[in-house]
Design a protein around this nucleic acid. Sequence first.
RNA 1: CGGGGUGUAGCGCAGCCUGGUAGCGCAUCUGCUUUGGGAGCAGAGGGUCGGGAGUUCGAAUCUCUCCACCCCGACCA
Length: 610
Amino acid sequence: MRSSRFFLSTLKEAPAEAELISHQLMLRAGMIRRLAGGVYTWMPIGLRVVRKVEAIVREEMNRAGAIELSMPVVQPAELWQASGRWQAYGPELLRFQDRHKRDFVIQPTSEEVITDIARAELRSYRQLPVHFYQIQTKFRDERRPRFGVMRGREFVMKDGYSFHADRADLEREYANMYATYCRIFTRLGLRYRPVAADTGSIGGTGSHEFHVLADSGEDAIAYCAASEYAANVELAEALAPPDPRPSAQEALSEVATPGRTRCEEVAADLGIALSRMVKAIALVSDESDDAVPLTASTQGTAGAGEGAAAASSDTHANDASAARTATPKLWLLLLRGDHTLNEIKAQKLAGLGAFHFANDAQIEAALACRPGYIGPVGASQSVRVIADRSVAVLADFVCGANREGFHLRGVNWGRDLPEPFAVADIRNVQEGDPSPDGGGLLQIQRGIEVGHIFQLRRKYSAALAATFLDAQGKAIEFEMGCYGIGITRIVAAAIEQNHDERGICWPDPIAPFRIAITGLGYQRNDTVRAATDTLYEQMLAAGIEVLLDDRNERPGVILTDLELIGIPHRIVIGERGLNGGTIEYQARGMTAPSAIPIADALDHIRRVLA
RNA sequence: CGGGGUGUAGCGCAGCCUGGUAGCGCAUCUGCUUUGGGAGCAGAGGGUCGGGAGUUCGAAUCUCUCCACCCCGACCA
């Protein structure tokens, strides 16, 4: 391809909207242009990368026995109503009506349609197993699209769905896909890690996420260097400390800590380890269950002390915010000063469910103290105290005194305050924690989720009555698996993982062009142009995907553009080199070019591209 | 959706506080020179100052309102 017949559009400065480095580089390299929030045009150079990723995914899916089809982006609401997702999905599901006022959605995934296909087409166990997949545009109306195509609303995903006669065969295919995904990400040239994922409400054993490792990743992955354990930090269990609670040594005392509201400050002032500090996080449940109405606090009501009755009634039951503040209960979650709350784990506490952080008024109403000095000691029965496992085994710890400007030290369970209402794992694991599988210590790495495999079981086949006849002629619901890969996200993730100060450094398998060639003074120097054209034609004849930059630009412009775009190999031909019988080759990551005899040029190129 | 911020030429920004002819750099176009790392000189084009309403003799500037975008928090490929 000649750049004069292609389309390159690079920018010196990235638009201010781009925060993430991959987003900036994609805009600067002219790969994408924004059309609306989270919606991007793939420009020619960017589309080439998308196609490379798709091709590798397609090849490996086919090799693994999956069969490609393509389902509509626009899908009728009926199937979604049948599966329950019309109600369950929420505002992320883009819905609209056609001219006949019939409801439709733009697919975020296609479980319903594929199950409908299976219901119609797969009638006998003899036809199983079958794995259908598509590479298709998806739309999810994200709350907050950001980071360019990394978290866009419209994106391309490979989604596959497998149908099985029984659980064992589903698990076989699941293992097959696990291996296939590993092959795919290896072929893409990315550093990645499969991690155990939440099976969520569907249950079952099998779900793994595949993460591309990058410091800017949104997910933190806890893994064990000594074993195979790897899980999203949100899900990794923090084991209970092995040793029992020591006995109390210190007497309870109150210490003045004016202006010191953060654990770090108090620990430093008192000269104690942060791990001896206990912080209390006040939460209010959003669930309106009727167990023990605790302290109510209608916003800012003066004197709404402990035991104040819930003020608002159910007359505004349709008003979500009113309902939410109807019967707030204060939960006090206790964590060590050096730990952080895991909100996913907290959400799973019985009775807490959906929650939000208590506001100042709610905290003052329940504890008669401003945030910053709150603690579990002396809290009324109406406050539910949950201790993290690590807090439950502390003795002689330090916590807020429920009195502004004071903390308590030498606090001991059972002596100074009742044992907690419950002890639970509510913190995020951190580096150095023991691995939940007992295999060693955890380390933490950041990653970008680019793949997810899942054993759906019978959720959709049951909802949509999708059955086949087994050998006994009995109708059986399919066991289903689903398997996703974020095609367009992979493009951004690959850049996050592979860039330098000059621009993108594509892994060879997904680079928009494998090699670039340019002649210095191509447009005005016949010798250079002839030599450049000759080698270019040779490369084309050899089937090499090459970009000839023949623009009438200064060398600096061409070279910086090629580096920004990230083409992994580069040939530069200049008159000076030609006089000595050489051309220059430089890999994108190399700091200096090497001179190659013209006669060896093509062989050399073949070798580095091999 | 809650909290914060920004909208001025294709891109990056100044001007706004203290109202009075809309500016700078890059990019674009023309000419000449230049040509191994984002060229120099000379000239040119390009703006509903996000939209609407208001205050005022006069609004990019002050007020109200709507919209878009960005950042921080709760979801996901």
